[in-house]
Design a protein around this nucleic acid. Sequence first.
DNA 1: GGTCAGTAACGCTTCGGCTG
DNA 2: CAGCCGAAGCGTTACTGACC
Length: 422
Amino acid sequence: MDFKRKLGFLPTPTMPPVNVPVASPPPPPSPSPPEPPNIIEQLRAKMAEILDRPRYHTPPAAPADPSETALPFVRLETPNGPLYRRHVILPPSHHVGRIPVDSAYSSRTELLALLALDPRLAELRVAGALFFDTETTGLAGAGAIAFLLGMAWFDADGRLNVEQLLLRSPADEPALLDAFTERLAQTELLVSYNGKTFDWPLLKTRYVMNRRAIPQDLPHLDLLHIGRRLHRARLGACRLKTLESEVLGFDRGVDVAGADVPARYQHFLRTGDEQALREVVEHNAWDVVSMAALVGLYGEPFDLMHGEDLVGFARTMKRAGALAVAERAADRALELGATRALRVRGDVHKARGDRARALSDFEALADDLDDPALRLELAKLYEHFVKDPARALQMTERGTSEAELAAVKRRERLQRKARKTD
DNA sequence: GGTCAGTAACGCTTCGGCTG
DNA sequence: CAGCCGAAGCGTTACTGACC
């Protein structure tokens, strides 16, 4: 067998033609057999799955007319080589789902600072923010480079400018880094999605590798962590794309999976085929624009945010010590039917020393008495505020005994079930 | 597949309020 | 006044998940 051909090191007639759209995911794995497959079968299935993945290193297409380009970038000459730039200004009416992008411009950074648990941000303006996102040749730690840098900022008229810089060749990296340095000089606040962990350290590594001064660390608003605090209870996963559809109400349709991005760039480098990169470029632009929309929402959340998300908002405000805002958010969440907000509001009342209202909210959660933390709060209030030790004692026994009873019953039922199936 | 900010769950300490 | 309780803050540790 020709293993090189089989494993994709050489082109085969079965590979997709260069210009075929390549965004479709690989076909789903075949349904698993009733019996667990042995290790050989598992390896065969894995190999089949790998071989079915789209490949991008097809033979070079016929030389394209150099005057035509599938990618909407303008070539600029710089002292450090060519720089490929795309610059778009979004109209003020531009929305991402329900959220007008320019709402971020007037976003209250006091609120964003509380959400980010970073008081420094309150002094800054979104007008001085740079939203940024990179597309790279892989994850950090493996010599990855950022071949596409997407940036967005508001100009003096409050319009969102989106700029993208592309490396048509890795050799052009110094020009890209210098352009980024220039943009950073006009920036007082960085905004990213997981950029504190991924994009920013990776870019700093690239400055080192290119023997350039590392830009100074700027205040950094990483929306991933705010997203988790607000939406995790409702959504579970908090990827940017999930927030875009479930929080902003926008579906970008066909999109590139992040894990496919490195292969698409490698394909571009080997063949010059720009088609596969077009969707990466669009994906990158959407990412920075969506960040701006998220900032708009987080800066003015009360009218537009989902009730369940306002519970997370209220909890974060409480954690940041903004008790009045926390109470307002919990009230609004309850108006929207999110009864989980009772727990947060009770905690807020307690933190303010309003034990009567704390008791009222905690008692309204009587359905949750199997929650030991809630029973503890009620026991404290019955003992020290209501002065009813008997009731407090009941609270310490009640839920526990019920939970234990339920656990014992379940254990017995499962044991019976196990005996039947033996 | 590497990285790392953030989180949760601890234990420990300090401080202030209440009670007998 | 001593003793108890609760709240809050701090440090440690182990773990999670999102980025390409």
